[in-house]
Design a protein around this nucleic acid. Sequence first.
DNA 1: ACGATCTACATGACACATCAACTACTCCCT
DNA 2: AGGGAGTAGTTGATGTGTCATGTAGATCGT
Lengths: 156, 156
Amino acid sequence: MARIEETPWLDPGQQRAWRGYRRLRLLVDTRVARDLAVDSGLSDPDYDVLSELSEASGHRRRLGELAERMLWSQSRMSHHVKRMQQRGLVRREECARDGRGAEIVLTGEGLRVIEEAAPHHVASVRRNLIDLLTAEQIAMLEQIADTVVERVEPRP
Amino acid sequence: MARIEETPWLDPGQQRAWRGYRRLRLLVDTRVARDLAVDSGLSDPDYDVLSELSEASGHRRRLGELAERMLWSQSRMSHHVKRMQQRGLVRREECARDGRGAEIVLTGEGLRVIEEAAPHHVASVRRNLIDLLTAEQIAMLEQIADTVVERVEPRP
DNA sequence: ACGATCTACATGACACATCAACTACTCCCT
DNA sequence: AGGGAGTAGTTGATGTGTCATGTAGATCGT
């Protein structure tokens, strides 16, 4: 990486892109999260965990695997699962193959909640992002995201 | 707004765009925030507040004005300013024209910190987003953000 | 001028996220 | 088998964000 003194400032277009991105993120995420809370009593992370579990075989996954797929820290997942467990959305089971392990399982209630929530959430995502953009913009958004996700590397 | 039952599911391209956006956001924001914390001891919101104040005339703004410009709730700003004040980055002054008002003023220390932090932060933004994209992608990102910010409306 | 109402801000309670320990189990090497 | 290193997960402290509510000063109608 170049030395700090050599890093050029953002040019006006880059500046606008960065500020635009941050504003987009603030607006869209705040609104989607608020819709989700009002419509379904879920937080955004709640929804993501339920969604991930509902797509897993047996509606269950190891805690660490869940965390890795979602790019969460294990600690975050552990804390979050504890709260979701207290609300009856998931439960923990001991892992037969690994005494240290925890399997997180979607409960019937959890399944009911995510199925109820999904259509509202889709509508919210449309209202707050997807339906505001043209098909070309959607395609570009995907392409930009893919580019970044592919190229970002851990810091030394 | 259409009834929920009528809202179509996201098509595959929209699905990928939405998931891509979420992953982009998670990756970029986590990294930029982490860099900022390591390099300068600031959180992302800290940086934004300092930056906004440093651009204000007299390095000061009313709390509510600050919140409005940054699309934050007043409550959030009030809490955040309290924490920043405890670290000596800003201070509160009573407002002469309005007995209820609070003026938030950048301290000398706050100015020093943001000036020290800025080049590192720019480098981080480049490393984690801007320099990963082509000029066309940057322009599209700006355009997408502008479109969304313009069109998003409050919910009834 | 006085009460109703509105506005600016603060606060408390709670959910969320991160980092730094810590515990308990597994794996591997000899 | 035994001991060290690595791995899976938990926990506690702290900072961050949201909502509901509280308080005091401004404003406006009469």
